[in-house]
Simulated assay, not measured.
Amino acid sequence: MIPGAEAVTPVIHTIGLGKVYSPGSEAEVVALRNVDLSVAAGEFIAIMGPSGSGKSTLMNLIGCLDTPSAGRYLCDGVDVSTLDAEELAALRRDKIGFVFQGFHLLPRMSALDNVAMPLGYARVPPAERRERARAALEAVGLGARVDHRPNELSGGQQQRVAIARALINHPSILLADEPTGALDSRTGEEILALFKRLRDDGHTVVLITHDAHVAAHADRICEMSDGELHEAARGEVAT
Results as ranks from 00 to 15, higher is better:
L61W: 04
G49V: 11
R33P: 01
V80W: 09
E152T: 09
D79C: 01
S69V: 14
D94F: 02
G42D: 06
T67G: 09
L61M: 07
A122Q: 07
V115Q: 05
I45K: 10
F98V: 07
G120Q: 10
K95S: 12
G97V: 15
A127L: 14
N34P: 02
P126A: 15
E138R: 12
A116P: 10
D79H: 05
G97H: 09
L74F: 15
M109G: 01
A89R: 09
A41F: 04
A135T: 09
E87D: 13
H148L: 05
R108L: 08
L58Y: 00
A85I: 15
A40L: 08
A122Y: 01
R123N: 14
G71L: 00
R93F: 06
G97Q: 09
M48Q: 15
V35M: 06
H170C: 12
V161N: 00
S38T: 08
G49F: 08
L142V: 00
L137S: 11
I163M: 02
A116Y: 09
P126K: 14
T57D: 06
S110R: 05
F44D: 01
N151Q: 12
D113M: 14
L119T: 02
G71K: 06
R129L: 06
L91N: 00
G143V: 11
E43F: 02
V124Y: 05
